[in-house]
Amino acid sequence: MNIPADLKFTTNDEWVRVEGTTGTIGISDFAQDQLSDIVFVEIVVAEGETHAKGDSCATLESVKAAADVYLPVGGKVLAVNDALPDKPELVNSDPYGEAWMVKIEITDPSELGGLLDAAGYQKHVEEKE
């Protein structure tokens, strides 16, 4: 199970990479493995919109399951990954890289405090399994 040390995670299996005030968001390796082959990705937020922490930002479907992706932190949407809906399999093959979903201008950095670090997420995943 790949859990990069530089990311923060939610208990709902989203990750966020923080660079300055920008947060890049996707779902974890564990989550893609649980969902199995992703066949559909829909990003449900648009550039320029402002959303709160916990708002839905994407929907994923595999053959057997569906999942909503929620924002780990609130803010203004800087970019969405337009390439992803055409290549949903990227979520399986490169969940922390090419399969990023949304970039956000973080409004309130203190929201990051409630997230798990890599070790904490590792523990969370082990409990779930």
């Binding site: 066949v39 559909f40 479907e61 595999s62 053959v63 057997k64 399951a65 569906a66 909503d68």
Partner: peptide, 13 residues
Amino acid sequence: TLTAREQHIRREK
């Protein structure tokens, strides 16, 4: 196919 739209998977959503 596309069963992930349906109630037995998506339940209240």
